[in-house]
Computed example of a mutant assay.
Amino acid sequence: MFRLCCLTLVSLAVAGLGCNQNAAWRQQQVLAQQQTQAQIAEFERRASGLDASNQDLHSQLAQAQQQSKILQDELTLVRRQLGDTANQLAQSQQMAKEKDEKVQTLLASTQYRGGAVIRPNNSLTADLSKIQIPGVTARQDGDVIRIEIPADMLFHPGTNSLSPNADNVLSQVSSILQRDFPTNKIGVEGHTDNQPVNPPYTSNHQLSASMAQSIFDQLTGRYRLDPSRIVVVGHGSNHPVVSNATPAGQQRNRRVDLVIYAESSN
């Protein structure tokens, strides 16, 4: 009986020890699981932070690319403007060169038609106010007066054929030339725009020369100006007063200039 009681106590002790070990193991498992979940949460937090940083970097990259495109466009515009400025400078230099050549030609040709000499004289400036014709521009050009008559007031478009209004303009011009500049040399210069000509003309020079000749014929024939004091020149499109880039500019460049030189003496 005593042995049985001892066995029973030993069994109960072993059972109690086993229960304690199971409880400790379960506690270790719970702790390990909690640590694992904590690590997983930390990894997820880090991953979320990396995603946010990645998105921010993509946003900054897109902004940088956009800014680069804007700067590239601005650079292209600046280069284009520099090119336009260089072209304008080249045109200005060419026009200055042509004007200088024209002056030299005039100086080299001061004696012509019977030995008459054109002497520079600033007295013409005071005579500008005498030229008052609607639609016609008179201006000082160095030592000469230049009367600029739009071709559209004189000719049918693209021809040397006089329009009905031409007589009104030429009669006023001839009256001024006879009354106020009776002994001055007169140049009749034809000018065109830069557009292609139509048949029967083969070039703008030919058209401009025929325009100037038609005005010469009218001034000397109908209005009785002395032909010995008139010089006829066709410049074509070589001497625009404004750019030919617009229709208005082309219209301005189509013209006949009557150039009044200072009084000449023999």
Rank of each mutant, 00 (worst) to 15 (best):
A248G: 05
G187T: 05
Q251F: 06
V232Y: 03
W25K: 13
P164G: 00
A245S: 14
S175H: 13
V259S: 00
S92H: 10
D141R: 08
L4K: 15
I149P: 01
Q218N: 09
N194V: 00
G114T: 04
L57W: 08
I230G: 01
R254M: 06
N121S: 12
D141K: 08
L207V: 06
G135H: 04
N204W: 03
Q65P: 07
R222K: 11
V197Y: 02
S53Y: 11
N238I: 00
P196T: 08
R146S: 06
N194Q: 06
G234H: 04
V197T: 08
L82Q: 10
P157E: 08
D226I: 07
R255D: 02
N54I: 07
R80I: 13
E189P: 01
A116R: 09
A13H: 08
L170Y: 04
Y112E: 10
F216G: 04
L107Y: 15
N122G: 12
A248E: 15
C19K: 11
S53A: 12
Q91G: 00
D141M: 07
G142R: 00
V173Q: 06
L219N: 02
G158I: 02
E44C: 11
L177C: 07
L82R: 08
Q206N: 11
Q63M: 14
E148M: 15
Q91N: 02
Q172L: 07
T36H: 14
T36V: 15
P240R: 06
Q81E: 04
Q218H: 09
S48K: 12
S161C: 10
S171M: 12
D141H: 07
V197F: 01
A64F: 02
I176D: 01
A248T: 15
A96T: 12
Q206P: 09
I260S: 01
A262Q: 09
G190V: 03
R26Y: 13
K97T: 14
Q218M: 14
Q63C: 13
V259H: 01
N198F: 10
T246A: 04
S48M: 13
F181G: 06
T202P: 00
V136D: 06
C5T: 15
G114M: 03
G18S: 13
R80A: 14
V188F: 03
Q93N: 13
C5P: 05
A13E: 11
L162D: 03
V197Q: 05
S175Y: 15
L77W: 12
T183P: 04
I147T: 05
V231R: 06
L170H: 06
G115L: 01
A245N: 09
P120M: 02
V233P: 00
Q94Y: 04
T192R: 05
Q72K: 12
S68W: 04
V144C: 11
Y261A: 02
G18D: 11
T137A: 04
E101W: 13
D217Y: 00
L89V: 15
R255P: 02
S11T: 14
N244I: 12
D143Y: 03
R229Y: 02
Q218P: 06
Q27G: 10
I131S: 03
S264N: 09
Q195M: 08
S92V: 10
V197W: 01
G158A: 05
F181I: 00
S264L: 05
H235E: 02
L106Y: 04
V232H: 00
P157F: 01
R254Y: 05
Q27Y: 03
V241A: 07
T76L: 15
V144A: 07
Q28K: 09
A38F: 08
P182Y: 03
A166L: 02
W25R: 13
L50V: 10
A166R: 00
L9S: 12
